[in-house]
Structure formats: C-alpha cells, structure tokens
Amino acid sequence: MTVITTQRLILRPFTAADLPEFAALQQDPDVNHFLPWFAPQTTANAMQLLRTQYLDSPAAYQLAVCLRTTNKAIGYINVAADDDHDLGYGMARAFWGQGYMTEAAQALLAHLPVTAYPFLTATHDVLNPKSGAVMQRLGMTYQYTYLEQWQPKNIPVYFRLYLLNRDGNNTRRFDKYWRMHPTHVVEKPPLRVDSEIGQLDD
C-alpha cells in the first residue's frame, strides 16, 4: 500500500469512508467542468464512481490527497500504469490556490521509480490554465495543443500536452495525440486562451 507524507499532506489509497468528500468534489460544477465524466447525481452514483476508479483498482498510484491535520480527502492524484504514464489530479475548490496540488505532485514524482516511469505526460483544458501552471512547476514542458471531441460529454476541447522526461532522454517526443487528432497546433509563447487558438501556426 502506497502512503506518502509531506509537510501538509498525506497521499494514501481511498477508502469507502472518503465517500462524503469524494462526492462533494465530484458534484461541484466548477470542478466537474474539467473532469472527463459527468458529475454523479446521487450518493449511490458517487459510490459507484469511487469504487470503479479507486476502490476496485489494482493500480498503485491512484491516491487520495488528504490534509495531515484531518486525514480527510481534499483531492486526488494518479499516474496511469499504461504507456502514456499520464499524470492526473483534481482538488476541491476550497483548497485551490494554496499550493497543495503542486506539493502532492512533487511528492508523488519523488516516489515514482524512474525505471517504471521514465517519463510522464499530462494534459489540461486550455480554459484551465491553473492546471497547466502545476505542470510547469513540476518541470514539465509544453509539447503541443490538440482538439478532441471529449467523451462522454461530447464537447470540443483544446488540450495542451506536457511532457516530463525523467530518465535523461531529452530527445523523447510523445506524439500519440498529435497523430490521433488532425486538428493540432504548437502555440507560440506566451501560451494563451482565446478564440484564435485554432488558427495558430501548425
């Protein structure tokens, strides 16, 4: 069982006792807007989502982000075990802007074995630049932006892809989404969110 502690946080596996905090986070429209699933409408729906994503998952790095003072979940963080090594995270709105997610992600990265995770990827909706700021603080570098018809919400979303090479292979590229999605661009710095994003240089 993976448990990681920092100055302010405990990263640990979710339990069924985390349901109230998990449900509140998932049902917040400001949080769910950037999540790849619809908000659970009932406590039973939230429990099913918690069970599917965390309680029944064998993955080692799907963790609740908890305050050390209370051991209550204020968010989640995970790294996919597939070839993408995708870093994902979310946090309750009351705890935004306090550096908690950067602290949690830095601790998780320090714990991940480089041999199993030689690189990490992460994506964020261009309308959620604060998520991208976390990626930048982790040392991840911007690669490209692509347009995806996001499911199951079936909405068009521009995602920015970031990459972190952890094994010294700084020539590595992760072009999977570039190849999958025909509408893609490399934005010129500074990265911006506006109506012209689809017209930036390819």
Rank of each mutant, 00 (worst) to 15 (best):
A104T: 00
T171S: 15
V114P: 05
F14H: 05
T5D: 14
N169K: 10
Q26E: 13
G97I: 02
D86I: 02
R51Q: 14
Y144G: 03
Q62C: 15
D18Q: 02
V193S: 11
Q62R: 15
L138S: 07
R8S: 14
P13R: 13
Y76F: 11
N165V: 10
N165Q: 13
V134S: 00
M180R: 13
P182A: 12
P36V: 00
Y54K: 02
Y158R: 01
P20M: 02
P156N: 04
G168W: 11
A60L: 14
D194A: 12
C66Y: 02
L163T: 04
A64D: 02
D201V: 15
A104N: 03
T145Y: 09
Q62K: 15
T6L: 00
N154E: 14
S195C: 10
A60T: 04
E196L: 13
V193G: 05
L9I: 03
L25V: 04
A122P: 06
D202R: 15
V65I: 11
P113I: 06
T102C: 11
R166W: 06
Q199N: 14
A107K: 05
T141E: 15
N165P: 09
A73S: 15
Q143I: 00
R68S: 10
L191D: 07
N128R: 08
D167H: 01
T171P: 00
A24N: 04
F14S: 05
N154S: 13
R137I: 07
T42R: 08
H111M: 08
P13T: 12
T115L: 09
L108P: 04
R173S: 10
Y177H: 14
A23K: 03
P40S: 00
R12P: 09
M47G: 10
T102S: 10
Y76C: 10
Y142S: 03
T52A: 15
R51W: 01
A81E: 13
A122I: 05
L163C: 01
A23L: 06
N170P: 03
M91A: 00
A23R: 00
E103V: 04
Y158T: 02
T69W: 04
G90T: 07
P113W: 07
L163V: 07
Q48G: 09
M1L: 14
P40L: 12
Q149Y: 12
L147E: 07
T52S: 15
P40M: 06
D125S: 05
A16L: 13
H111P: 03
A92K: 04
E196A: 09
A94M: 09
P156T: 09
A59I: 04
P113H: 06
P36A: 06
R173N: 06
L163I: 03
I10C: 13
T171R: 12
N128C: 04
V31G: 00
Y142R: 02
G168F: 03
D194R: 12
L19N: 08
D125K: 05
L49H: 11
M135Y: 07
E103S: 08
Y146L: 02
I197L: 12
D84N: 09
V186A: 05
L11S: 06
M91C: 11
T5W: 09
